[in-house]
Design a protein around this nucleic acid. Sequence first.
DNA 1: TCCTTAGTTCAAAACTTATTGAACAATTGT
DNA 2: ACAATTGTTCAATAAGTTTTGAACTAAGGA
Lengths: 118, 118
Amino acid sequence: MTLPHPTADQISLPNVLAVLGDPTRLAIVRYLASKEGVPLNCSQFLDLGSKTNLSYHLAKLREAGVTRAEVVGTSRLITLRRDDLDARFPGLLDSVIAAAVDDTALPAVGGHEVEMPA
Amino acid sequence: MTLPHPTADQISLPNVLAVLGDPTRLAIVRYLASKEGVPLNCSQFLDLGSKTNLSYHLAKLREAGVTRAEVVGTSRLITLRRDDLDARFPGLLDSVIAAAVDDTALPAVGGHEVEMPA
DNA sequence: TCCTTAGTTCAAAACTTATTGAACAATTGT
DNA sequence: ACAATTGTTCAATAAGTTTTGAACTAAGGA
């Protein structure tokens, strides 16, 4: 089972900007960027909203082509679509992330570190 | 008489992104960028919407800190706030404009060239 | 003064987005 | 099989945005 994603050329600039222009979604992207390479599941973002609300915002990000979600068991592993975004809109993601870091301190998101069994 | 503008530090990233995430406003910014240095008045944008509607969108851009409007007679001369945007969010405006140019061909806006008296 | 030009303001309508809780589906562990 | 975990969907509501026309203000020119 896979979730619907736009192809790279279906990613639209106004749509990407509109989707990033929401504080919750910008915080999600900012957090994904700070952990780039590490796929995260939805529950890592629970500090940013309720489970239902996050499902909504994560769907918006995915449908706009900002994130990719891979279904693994009951989890969706979420990553930034940096490759496609960089190809389509060079420099945009980097400047948004850099600006977001400056603009807002990283909220106390996460805290669900992967515990190694003792 | 002057119009209200946010100070540079009042310009918020989510707000700027949200404001740019509208096709009409993005087209306005794209056109301002293509004529950078030349202050434009509202009527130059009439191809993009009705007079009332443009007044609304131009107010949004100004209130978000994306543009500056100077009152000269009955006109408002509109320019990009590139200095403040670049200081606050380095690279953002440039990457948005570059992406907008790629994404959408410049619509047949303008056509009201400044005629030199014969 | 009167008319035109440039743009704003207001109120209404139409539309879109965000947020919530309850119910649901699918996987994993016991 | 049962329960727990992970996340989605649905319907409702609340809230915000966009668009419109009519009425308005202010400046400039005849």
